[in-house]
Amino acid sequence: MTVTDEVFALDGRRALITAAASGMGRAAARLFAVRGAHVIVADVDDAATADTVQEIEDAGGSVEGHVVDLGDQRALDAFLDRVQAGHQVIDVLYSHVGIAGPRGLDFDDASWRATMTLNVWVPTAITQRLLPQLRSSQAASIIFTASTAGIIGVPTLLTYAATKGAVIQFMKSVALLLAPEGIRANAIAPGGTDTAGMRASFESGVIDRSLAAIAATVPLGRVATPEEMATVALFLASDASRYVTGTVIPVDGGVTAGARAL
Rank of each mutant, 00 (worst) to 15 (best):
V68Q: 03
V68K: 02
L70Y: 03
L70G: 04
L70P: 00
G71F: 11
D72T: 00
D72C: 00
Q73S: 10
Q73K: 09
Q73E: 13
Q73G: 01
R74E: 14
R74A: 13
R74P: 00
A75L: 02
A75H: 00
A75K: 00
L76P: 01
D77K: 07
D77E: 14
D77Y: 02
D77I: 06
A78K: 07
A78R: 10
A78D: 14
A78L: 08
F79K: 07
F79P: 01
F79T: 08
F79Q: 06
L80G: 03
D81T: 15
V83A: 03
V83N: 01
Q84E: 13
Q84R: 13
A85P: 02
A85H: 12
G86M: 03
Q88F: 00
I90L: 15
V92Q: 03
L93V: 11
L93C: 08
Y94E: 05
Y94M: 09
Y94G: 03
H96T: 11
H96F: 08
V97Y: 01
V97A: 14
V97S: 12
G98M: 09
G98D: 04
I99K: 10
A100C: 02
A100Y: 13
G101F: 11
G101K: 11
G101S: 12
P102Y: 01
P102W: 02
R103V: 12
R103H: 14
G104Q: 09
G104H: 05
G104D: 01
L105V: 11
D106R: 15
D106N: 15
D106H: 15
D106T: 11
D106S: 15
D108T: 05
D108Y: 04
D109C: 00
D109A: 13
D109V: 10
A110C: 01
A110K: 12
W112C: 10
W112V: 05
R113K: 12
R113S: 13
A114G: 04
A114R: 15
A114L: 08
A114T: 13
A114S: 15
T115N: 02
M116R: 01
L118N: 02
L118V: 15
N119T: 07
N119L: 09
V120K: 01
W121Q: 11
V122H: 11
V122Y: 10
P123A: 09
P123F: 08
A125G: 00
L131E: 14
P132W: 11
P132K: 12
Q133R: 11
L134E: 04
L134W: 08
L134M: 15
L134G: 05
R135Q: 15
R135W: 07
S136Y: 07
S137G: 07
S137P: 06
Q138V: 12
A139R: 14
A139I: 05
A139Y: 11
A140C: 12
I142Q: 05
I142P: 02
I142L: 14
I142C: 03
I143K: 03
F144T: 04
F144G: 04
T145P: 02
T145I: 13
T145G: 01
T145H: 08
A146Y: 01
A146D: 06
S147N: 14
S147W: 14
T148G: 06
T148W: 07
G150W: 06
I151L: 15
I151M: 15
I151W: 01
I151D: 07
G153S: 13
V154L: 08
V154K: 05
P155D: 14
